[in-house]
Structures are given as C-alpha cells and as structure tokens.
Amino acid sequence: MLEIIGLIIKISIVVGVTQGAVAYLILVERKIAAFSQDRIGPNRVGPLGLLQPIVDGVKMFLKEDVTPNYVNKPIFILAPFLSIVTAMIGFAVVPFGPVGPNGPGLFDGPIQFQIAPGIDIGLLYIFAVGSLAVYGVILAGYSSNNKYSFLGGLRSSAQIISYEIPMGLSVLGIVLLASSLDLNTIIQWQDKNAWGIFVQPLGFFIFLICAFAETNRLPFDLPESEQELVGGFHTEYSSMKFGMFFLGEYLHVITVSFLVVILYLGGWDPPFVSLGDSGWLMAILKVGTLITKVLAMIVFVMWIRWTLPRFRYDRLMELAWKRMIPLAIGNTVVTALILQLIRR
C-alpha cells in the first residue's frame, strides 16, 4: 500500500512541477525573444514580470471558448486532451535523479527518482508514446473542418512520422554502447565511461535535429507556419483548448530536453567531478545537475528559435529522408562494427 501511495505522490510531483514549469517556460521564452529582438519583454506584472505566467493562465481560462458549429465535435474536444496526455505519459520512465539500490532511504527502502524504475524497455516506451503524439495534431486538423487546419495537420503528421525514423535510428548507437534500453543503465554507462556526445557525436546531432522536429518548434514549425496556414492545426481552437495545445508543445520541449541530456549529456553525471553513490547529499547533487542541464537545454531550444529561419516543406522532407536516415543508418553500422572489433 505504501508503495502505491509513494507512486501517487511521485506522479503528483512530476505532473505539478512540469505543469508549473511550463508556465514559467513561456515567460522565459518571451524574455529570450525580447532579448534577441533588443526589447525588454514582459515586465509589468510583478517584479521582472515574474507574475506574468499566472496572469496569462487566468486569461486563458477566462476567455470565451468558441466551438464553431461545423466541427466534428467529439474529436474536436478529444484532440487537445490527447495532445497533453501523450506529452505527459512519457515522463513515467524518465529518471529525475539516481535510481538504484543505494539511493537515500525513506520508510522501507531507497527512494527512486523515477516513476516506474526497472522498466527494461524505457527508451522503447518513450518512442512508443512519442509516436502517439501525432494523434492530437492530426485529429485537431481533421475535426476542425477547415482547410488551413487540415493542411497544417497533414503537414505536421507527415513531419512527425518522417522524423521519428532517423530519431529512432540515431539512438541505436548509444544503445549499442550501453547495451541497454533502460535510461538509468545508459546514464550509468556514461558515468563510468564517457558522455554520449563524445562517443556518438553524429548520433547526438541527428537526435537533436529530430528532437526539434518532433516538438514542432522553429525551424521546424511548418504545421503552424503563421504566414501560410493562419495558425495551422489549432486555428479553430480558443481559450483553454488552445492553451492545452500550447501546454502540450512545451511539455514536449521538456521531455525532449530530458532525453537529450539523459542520452547524450551524461544525465546526472556532472563534468570533471565524480559523485558518490549513496546518501541524501549525493542524490540532491545529482538531481540538481540533471535539472540544471535540462534547463540549459531548454534555453538552447528557445535560443535556436531566433537563430534559424523556417524550412521550406520539400527541403524538410528531403532532409529527413535523404540526409538523416542514411547518416543514422551509417552511424549504427559503424558503431556496431567498431564495437565488434574492440570486443575481439
């Protein structure tokens, strides 16, 4: 029974923290945007504009929720929920800190900083959940019964499906090296040997590019390219339903940043220092390292937005199918070959 209560507490913490983080990420994004454009950004509500997210949230709830009468209603309502749920459930296997038998003890046993530790197929699970993210977008586009939404939805699904392939292929290298699909084992391997970015530079870059594409952010935000498609798949959505798509997008950014950090940037392993295995202090340091890296990664994602222009649609598809997939396959083959030669 205690386990189940612990599990519920962990889930609540993860859900609460990520949802709260999203609100502040929007503020961070606006500040970075302002900085890039030589503006000041939101600074009216609270000191440094720090209360802005709360006001934004209230505004989102209080706006009129317009549902056009030509939409396919059940699917129209379902789509934003799917968008959030598919972005959220990936967190079940993401480690937020050290996981293992030596963690700091509480009640009967070590605390595991992961909702579902010991899942052998962690990475596969994340890809399975990630492949569901397309539903929110495609259903929103379809049910809106509007050409712009539909085109946005189609583009986005094509993009997400295409970029899933190089993404899946690119992580095979690090999986081969760590010889596990479990995210903790991959971090531990990096802790003992070297960070993924050093042993798998090509895999890292392919994964990073695909991660941007999967989150639908610039330079890959074709589904909602304002100039051509009004708002893309969420043109017809207003109020909190639109807010849920927004939330889903930012949750995706967080998940993807976690993944990049865990797979290629050493997870909770700080650079130059080696942390011990047991005790509260080490656990807190590890969690802190991981969160710092993830925050840095998120800022990087937002910074890129103001650095690169949007791709043209055919270029986008070419990049995935003609450049990245062959590169990712080559990366896998070379990694396997070298591993086999070393092992002999």
Partner: peptide
Amino acid sequence: AGFLAAGTVIVYAGAIIVTFLFVIM
C-alpha cells in the same frame, strides 16, 4: 512482454492507424 507492447504501439498505433486516418481523411 514489454517489448511486444512497445512494438505494437509503435507499429500499429503510431504508424498503421495514422496511415489509415490519412487515407480516410
């Protein structure tokens, strides 16, 4: 059978049904 579960979701829910949806739409 976690591998089977993840594989089924990736192949069926993530790819095949989405293709169905495309065609139907």
